[in-house]
Design a protein around this nucleic acid. Structure first.
Length: 861
RNA sequence: GCCGCCGUAGCUCAGUGGUAGAGCGCAUCCUUGGUAAGGCUGAGGUCGGCAGUUCAAUCCUGCCCGGCGGCACCA
């Protein structure tokens, strides 16, 4: 018997796969069923972490399984390679970001290859390859022509640490998602993609994504934030301000409460407010509003402040009713029209404001059970259901009919229209960074912003940028920006902003379908391969990347480059890899797991430092991170246990969507499993008959084999990999009941069948071990190309069922009956059973419930 | 505050309207030429709490408790 030696075995099989080029996707062939398995491509940080191991192992199980199922599988890999870490490395260490990035890619590629992933490496690319980002510039110009790209002077989220603009999606709790710095508001000329044009379709499309987690769909739905209401104009009661003669347009979702109107409010950066800022008092107030940060705490505690402009408007349903116009800090310019009518009785924000400035509070929704004569609103606005009152023609209506009636009246008066409004804002895509995809336009003094003709693409980054100081290295390059205007030929300046890296990742899956295409996307290839059948990645991209990719897919589709509307038919979001934390008792200093020894004393787990022997405090289980020093380096695990054990453990311990806890004991267990599996294969004598023959013992094993095939197949299909692995642990334990050295010929044959299935079942999880095992039992070719085992349904069912018998819901015995026996027959057997009869002595039988093949319950009293 | 998810053995988790399960860990014993191991056996659970529906609830419903996530001055 030879011990299983992954150090020899694993590289051997990886080489065999590479030599046979087994993972190369077949050509797009209509009629040949395809499967596109994709994991979110990594940022090339230079080092693989356990999160990567989990992510790519999960995707690999799917890819290998589908290959065994006979699909033409596309399973590519690439690099999301632009971005700030390269610039930071350049600034800190004086290295070139390009060289640093490609070095990292080389290191990570080697580590990923070691994982034994079934990747088609011939399609690899990095987003920082000019061959890729040049194509991105190409379609960017197409979208420009389509009117989906625009520039606008606007207030943007400015990250003072990274010195760049951030999209709304990249601001988390008022802080930059990467830097963690409190985001400032700045007014800049910005580049936008018109994602809001697709808001309705993006929200509707979610309904079709039945293989996405509900959670992610819900998060996107909330983010897009559709609300239905009314946009209408208030006519002026005072003299109309210049430019606003048509009135003041507001948006509301509560037109039913119009008779509860108290005042009209506009945002501090509303054009009207800016016009009124000619008055220094108004200007001072607006400046006051701009103070205060965007952080959660600041917004939460910010007091509502307002300024009465002295202007008044007329109520739409009563021309004699005048409402004052206030500037209020709680009104957002970029939602709706930046102006509202306030109904303090039924909106908490309006109420807070009205109480502060002593404005009227008039209730118009009567809660059920309240008396119209006595109902009043105190400091809490009433937002619940009820009946409209004090509201003329709306009186007596419920809220929804009242909304409809109010909208109809406003529309009849030609003062406005029912309107759907979205929370989603257009996507600000320009970043003031040097290490990104250049925006392919020039600025000409005469012609303005001019897109470059496509024959001038790609606009390539210079390779001698100065990253020694913060800020935009591209902008301060001495010569790069010099160009000539394609329209008038005069001297012009290149745009020095680059695109958000989320643009890079919003279409890479389409490029993977043909990485050599002259066009950005080879439509025939994309039509064959897309949508991605299974996409696997982290939940942190639920809104950002996944929303942008859905948008870009639609935009490119409308440009005729793609046929699918949804890029990812199936999405799986995996949980994080966590680990216990350890720290020194006195200093509180974090200690790495590899420097810790775990002991059991008095049945309790104790941690001790391997270096000093001191007792350590075992802390919480947290996401692996450098700051908590609770990381485990994958390469060190591979070195000790082999890749398969690491893959197996990371797949076995928890359902894939949940966090999984890495532990030394756990990977140890996986390693022992690998060895026990090998021993079982190794003990099988060569030349065992492949065809099992009837024999009670052999039949028992065969039944178990086929039940396991069924269970594992279903587990893999439904992403319950941990359950599938648990079934294989059981399978192995069952096999041990039939040791080869004591087996009869029929049992040996059944073992051969079991092992043949086993090797194929474990192949997606522990591919190297599976190859070695497959070879050991004389399997045909490599297991990677072997078909998935089929099960015989007749063997997965028992011939005899043991049914528990309950009396009044309590278990009182059991009977054995033929499987599938009809309830009436079962009832007869049960009632004839002497043991059951004894239990029923002195009781009158009221009812007998028989659930076929499951249970019998006798109700008696 | 609003929306959502989770709570089953020491740990990580399956599971089902009908006999409570797996892996790891733990304990006992065996093996000591598979030995930086292997094997046998076993203990351990008011299925978060309370109520309801049902012949029967860990499972369905409601409320509560605990943990986690998303959104948040979005009119």
């Amino acid at each position: 018997m030879a011990r299983y030696n992954p150090k020899e075995t694993e590289p051997k099989w990886r080489k065999a796969w590479a030599d046979a080029d087994v993972f190369k996707a077949g050509p797009p062939t209509p009629g040949v069923p395809k499967y596109y398995a994709l994991e979110m491509f990594p940022y090339p940080s230079g080092r693989l972490h356990m999160g990567h191991v989990r992510n790519y192992s999960l995707g690999d199980v799917v890819a290998r399984y589908k290959r065994a199922r006979g699909f033409n599988v596309l399973h590519p890999m690439g690099w999301d390679a632009f971005g700030l870490p390269a610039e930071n490395a350049a600034m800190e260490r004086g290295v070139d970001p390009r060289g640093w990035t490609y070095d990292n890619i080389a290191k990570m590629r080697a580590e990923l290859k070691e994982l034994g992933l079934s990747i088609d490496w011939s399609r690899e690319f990095a987003t920082c390859d000019a061959a890729y980002y040049g194509k991105q510039q190409d379609w960017f110009l197409d979208l420009w022509k389509r009117g989906l790209v625009y520039r606008k002077e606007s207030i943007v989220n400015w990250d003072p640490v990274d010195q760049t603009v951030l999209a709304n999606e990249q601001v988390v709790d008022g802080r930059g998602w990467r830097s963690g710095a409190v985001v400032e508001k700045r007014k800049l000329n910005q580049w936008f993609l018109r994602i809001t044009d697709y808001a309705e379709e993006l929200i509707e499309g979610l309904k079709t994504l039945d293989r996405w987690p509900d959670k992610v769909r819900l998060m996107q739905e909330n983010w897009i934030g559709r609300s239905k209401g009314l946009k209408f104009n208030f006519g002026w009661a005072s003299e109309a301000p210049k430019g606003f003669e048509a009135g003041l347009e507001v948006y509301t979702t509560r037109p039913d409460t119009l008779y509860g109107a108290s005042f009209v409010g506009i945002a501090p950066d509303h054009p009207l407010a800016e016009q009124l800022a000619a008055d220094p008092k108004v200007a001072a107030f607006i400046a006051e509003c701009r103070k205060g940060g965007a952080s959660e705490a600041e917004i939460e505690t910010a007091e509502k402040i307002g300024f009465d402009t002295g202007l008044t408007v007329a109520h739409p349903f009563d021309p004699n009713w005048r409402l004052p116009v206030w500037i209020a800090n709680f009104i957002l310019m970029d939602y709706g029209t930046g102006a509202i009518f306030a109904c303090p009785a039924h909106d908490q924000r309006d109420l807070d404001f009205a109480r502060k400035y002593d404005l009227p509070v008039k209730a118009v929704v009567l809660p059920p059970g309240e008396d119209a004569a006595t109902f009043t609103v105190g400091d809490e606005a009433y937002t619940g259901p009820g009946t409209i009152f004090h509201s003329d023609f709306l009186d007596g209506l419920e809220i929804e009919p009242a909304k409809a009636a109010a909208i109809a009246r406003i529309e009849a008066q030609n003062q406005g229209k029912g309107a759907t409004v979205f929370r989603l804002r257009d996507w600000g895509v320009a970043r003031q960074r040097g290490w990104g995809c250049p925006i392919p336009v020039v600025h000409c003094a005469k012609c303005g912003v001019v897109p470059l003709p496509k024959d001038q693409l790609p606009v390539v980054l210079p390779d001698d940028m100065d990253f020694s100081k913060p800020g935009n290295a591209l902008a301060r390059h001495p010569t790069w920006k010099n160009a000539s205007c394609p329209q008038c030929g005069a001297e012009a300046t290149r745009e020095t902003d680059t695109l958000d890296t989320f643009v890079d990742s919003s279409w890479y899956f389409a490029r993977f379908t043909d990485t050599e295409a002259a066009e950005p996307i080879n439509k025939a290839a994309a039509d064959y391969w897309l949508p991605v059948d299974q996409y696997v990645g982290g939940i942190e991209h639920a809104v950002l990347h996944l929303l942008y990719a859905r948008f870009v897919t639609r935009a490119l589709g409308d440009e005729g480059m793609l046929s699918v509307r949804e890029p990812f038919a199936g999405l799986f979001t995996q949980g994080m890899v966590t680990h216990e934390t350890y720290r020194r008792a006195q200093s509180g200093e974090w200690v790495e797991p590899k420097e810790v020894e775990i002991l059991a004393e008095d049945g309790k787990r104790q941690a001790r430092s391997l270096e000093t022997g001191e007792a350590l405090v075992i802390g919480d289980i947290e996401k692996m991170s450098k700051s908590k020093r609770n990381t485990v380096a994958p390469e060190e695990i591979f070195e000790v246990y082999g890749v398969d054990a690491a893959r197996l453990f990371v797949l076995s311990d928890s359902p894939p969507e949940r966090d999984t806890q890495w532990s030394a004991a756990g990977v140890d267990g996986a390693w022992r499993f690998v060895n026990r599996v090998w021993n079982e294969f190794d003990s099988q004598p060569a030349g065992a008959a492949p065809a099992p023959s009837p024999d009670p013992k052999a039949d028992e094993l065969r039944a178990f084999t086929h039940r396991t095939i069924k269970a594992v197949t279903e587990a893999v299909e439904t992403f319950r990999f941990n359950s599938g692995i648990a079934r294989m642990y059981e399978f192995l334990n069952k096999l041990k009941e039939f040791p080869a050295d004591k087996a009869t010929a029929p049992v040996l044959a059944a073992r051969q069948e079991a092992l043949s299935a086993f090797a194929r079942l474990i192949s997606p999880f522990t591919p190297h071990l599976a190859e070695e095992a497959w070879a050991r039992i004389g399997g045909d070719g490599m297991v990677v190309s072997a078909p998935w085992p089929a099960y015989d349904a007749t063997l997965t069912q028992d011939a005899v069922k043991v049914l528990p018998v309950q009396v009044n819901g309590k278990r009182r015995g059991e009977i054995s009956v033929a499987a599938g026996l009809e309830p009436a027959d079962v009832e007869k057997i049960v009632l004839d059973d002497p043991e059951i009869a004894r239990r029923l002595e002195g009781l009158a039988i009221k009812k007998v419930i028989v659930v076929k093949d499951r249970i019998v319950n006798i109700v008696a009293g």
